[in-house]
């Protein structure tokens, strides 16, 4: 058995020859060059680095590589290729849910995590689903609207 950590990254089997104590966030950005994953606070508060691990929303700054053996990791770069993303992207654009864009990759992963669990969320369920992702520009309501639109337009996808 090799010394690498084996996991699925955006649908592809990968081996990462990295220390088990390294942060997933750094490995995604520096080793795999997936820079859609942002480092906002580096301490699990802001959600800019959010990814899906086995379908669950996780802040990649709080995940040690050693815990990923055999896991499936999805970043915005992988999600971007899905039909669901196209619906979310359109809804975000229509609602004006993006300003500086730094929170957007994490916000979109949070949207997917929410809709995959709850395809028809209420306003307050959306707010709770996005509450781990901080945005300083929009005031959130336009993002909430975007998620509502995505849920409606993408009926059947989730």
């Amino acid at each position: 058995m090799s010394d690498c950590i084996h996991f699925i990254l955006n649908g592809e089997s990968v081996d990462a020859d990295v220390p088990g104590t390294a942060r997933l966030l750094d490995i995604l950005r520096e080793y795999f060059k997936l820079t859609g994953v942002k480092c906002g606070c580096g301490e699990g508060e802001c959600g800019a680095c959010a990814v899906l691990i086995n379908g669950k929303l996780r802040n990649s700054c709080m995940v040690a590589m050693g815990s990923l053996e055999g896991c499936s990791v999805m970043t915005i770069e992988g999600y971007e290729k899905t039909e669901k993303f196209a619906v979310v992207e359109k809804a975000y654009g229509k609602a004006g849910a993006v300003q500086c864009g730094f929170c957007t990759p994490g916000m979109i992963m949070a949207t997917e995590a929410l809709l995959s669990k709850n395809p028809h969320p209420t306003d307050s369920e959306i707010r709770e689903g996005l509450s781990g992702n901080l945005c300083r520009c929009t005031g959130y309501n336009m993002i909430v609207e975007a998620v509502m639109t995505a849920a409606k337009e993408g009926a059947g996808l989730w």
Binding site: G40, C41, E43, E45, C46, S124, I126, R127, E128, L130, S131, G132, N133, L134, C135, R136, G139, Y140, N141, I143, V144
Partner: peptide, 17 residues
């Protein structure tokens, strides 16, 4: 020291505007 101590509003804090 950080964003853990300096609290800004989340989506749950945002009122209807």
């Amino acid at each position: 020291n950080s964003i853990t101590d300096y609290i800004i509003p989340t989506a749950m804090d945002a009122p209807k505007i």
